[in-house]
Nucleic acid binder design. Structure first.
Lengths: 144, 144
DNA sequence: CAGAATCCTGTTAGATACTG
DNA sequence: CAGTATCTAACAGGATTCTG
């Protein structure tokens, strides 16, 4: 048991490092925006945030929808996103217990940008695939 | 329930990859969009793409601007982004050699979304920091 | 159902040194 | 300047097990 009251995933001291007045600069290594960027620039976080756009979703529902995510990673990611104030967690004392996750107002301001990323991937997949094929043909099979 | 109209019944033909007719679905574990999402939902990729918005930038210039990135990671990320067709690499036979990276038209369609993420982090840093503090106070030191 | 704890492994990133 | 190669430490993440 290594935790001293906090989950294993987020031992970073928040806010004390970068004392830039304003605005924050993501290009600065010590700026806290880097941490946020690292959080939201994450495949699973993107999918979760996008998934919650339609409304609250239960834990196992998210797990089923976001195919390939493990329970552990889902749990961790949800916790981090909750800590960042991007989503809220509501527990209903049913039996068995029901837990719903939903976007907070702050989270909602982000999901548009995040959804844009996900949708871009879907829309431009063909072009990316073609570019990869061209690159591989160039690098792998064309010595002369 | 707001289940989106997805080609859920699409049979998985072979072990190759997801060959859904259209559109690609990022929620499918085997969909190639997952790979793209993993690529562009990356802290360094976001910073690089955003940095190239103003025009071509040389390797070491990027390295200096994006503080904290190692030359190895920069090199790797650039190569992947180039392979995906998001940016181009131009070599000038000067002495010493000069290499410029620039966004491709495809990359340019992405950078707006990507920049939105980076800018969101800068603009909403305060709110996130506050949320984290509240969460930590709740979880770490407020048993009652 | 929702999640925590444990174990274990593959990937990654950082540092360092070398090349053209 | 613009990389590549290598080695190692750290961590992320999957599978499994257990709980309320």
């Amino acid at each position: 048991m290594v935790t001293s009251g906090k989950p294993q995933g987020a031992p970073e001291p928040a806010g004390e490092s970068c004392r830039l007045p304003w605005p924050f600069d993501v290009y600065e290594a010590q700026c806290p925006t880097r941490m946020v960027l690292d959080r939201i620039a994450d495949k699973w976080a993107v999918l979760i945030l996008d998934r919650l756009r339609d409304g609250p979703v239960r834990f196992n529902h998210l797990r089923r929808d976001i195919k390939g995510i493990s329970q552990k990673v889902l749990s961790q990611t949800l916790k981090k996103l909750e800590r960042d104030g991007l989503l809220s967690r509501a527990v209903f004392p049913t039996v068995p217990v029901t837990v719903e996750y939903a976007l907070t107002p702050l989270g909602r301001t982000l999901t548009d940008a995040v959804a844009a990323i996900a949708h871009w991937a879907e829309r431009n997949m063909d072009a990316v695939l073609a570019a990869q094929a061209a690159y591989d043909a160039r690098a792998g099979g064309d010595p002369g």
